[in-house]
Structures are given as C-alpha cells and as structure tokens.
C-alpha cells in the first residue's frame, strides 16, 4: 500500500511517501515558515521523489493535531477533496503520537511528555514510554497549565515537542514528521470517510452567547 502522509500541525510541515513493504520513507519534503499554502506543491515534489503518480496513492495519512488549526484543517480539506475525486482511503492520526514516534526514531528512550502549544498559556500534553524498538502511550492527551507540564519534567520525564524550548529550555525540540506519520499508518485499516475527520479539539468552546431574543409584543 502506498501511503501519502501529511503533517501540518506544527511550524514545520512535511509530506512523505511510505510504502508499507519498505521501512524507510520513499520520499519526504519539509517546509518551514509561511502559511502552508504550498501543500499540493509539496505533495507533487514528494511523489516525484518517490517516482509515483498521484493515482498510485492508496491512502492519505493525516496528522490531526492538536496544533495549528489552519495547518490541520488545510490538509483535512485537501484529503476530503482527494477522496471526493478518487475514493482514496483516509487515516487520521494524532500528531502527539507522531511526535512520540519521531522522538524514538531520533534515538530517545525512556519516559517522555509530548507538549504542544495550546495558546492561552496552556499546553496539550500526552505521556509516552519510548523503548528501543517501540513506544507506548501511558497517559492520553489532555490540556494542562505550564506548571502542570513543569511538574512532569520535575518527575523525570523529558519534555519533547515542536516548540518545547519556548517554555522549557531543557526540553528536546521534536517536530511531528510526515515520515513518522506514514510509518504509523502502515498496517492500519481503520480508515474514516473525510467528513468524519476533524482536528483534535480538547478545549471546550466558550464563545459568548447572545441574550435570548425578546418577543415583540
């Protein structure tokens, strides 16, 4: 199965092509900066590197955050358009899992906490144990304060994430990479129709409601 992986949840966006029969990614294109408008340009470049035609793609693996809503929504919409055209399979994957997998791929082992900017002085945080040949989630994603994240570091966990050094100088900067995302998709078949895929929303909406309408006498 040819998997095209798209990870746009962090300031570093990437697209990779992974073949489930081969361990390393066939191709990976990485961009930093800008608004991520060049998604299809990156897709074309990755496919070209992998010597594949777009029609050969069997599955799109999509990083669904948490993270930049703009980046995540742009690739979900992209995946929806692609599926409307070709019925390609879509597989949403947590970007926190992707960071954990990338951390292990970069040689880290032991307990880590993945932290992702949640704005408003809060972070998304999930705990993982990284083993030499695998990783496993130990506590699921949740919204935490900076102090709560600091407590994780004080308890001996290495904090990792795309912007971790903004708050924790001792943390290790790890971006969610499309190549790691693609490998997470290998062997999976829990595909979803595009309209059921949405970014991971952990914070309840708190928009101000209007007073109830006043009946006209």
């Amino acid at each position: 199965m040819k998997i095209l992986a798209l990870e746009f949840s962090s300031p570093q966006r990437s697209v990779a092509v992974v073949d489930d029969g081969q361990a390393p990614a066939l191709a990976e294109v990485i961009e930093t900066g800008g608004r991520g408008a060049n998604a299809l340009g990156m897709v074309e470049a990755a496919l070209r590197q992998a010597r594949l035609e777009r029609e050969q793609v069997d599955c799109l693996a999509i990083g669904i955050g948490p993270g930049s809503y703009t980046g995540i929504r742009s690739i979900i919409a992209l995946a929806q358009g692609w599926q409307l055209a070709t019925q390609v399979n879509l597989l949403p994957i947590s970007s926190a899992d992707c960071i954990a997998a990338q951390a292990r791929a970069e040689g880290l082992t032991g307990p880590v906490a993945v932290v992702i900017d949640a704005q408003r002085k809060e972070l998304y945080l999930a705990n993982y144990d990284l083993l030499p040949d695998a990783w496993r989630a130990t506590e699921p994603l949740r919204l935490v304060s900076l102090d709560q994240a600091r407590a994780q570091a004080d308890a001996g966990r290495l904090l990792v994430g795309p912007e971790v050094s903004r708050w924790f100088p001792d943390g290790r900067v790890i971006f969610p990479r499309a190549s790691a995302l693609g490998r997470l998709a290998v062997g999976r078949s829990d595909f979803l129709p595009g309209h059921q895929i949405e970014p991971i929303y952990l914070r309840p909406t708190t928009f101000v409601k209007a007073p109830p309408p006043r009946p006209v006498p």
Partner: peptide, 9 residues
Amino acid sequence: KAAQALAFA
C-alpha cells in the same frame, strides 16, 4: 483546499 485537491487528483 478541497477544490484544489479535487482538481489535482
């Protein structure tokens, strides 16, 4: 983005 991807595919 959906329209662009549809056209691309």
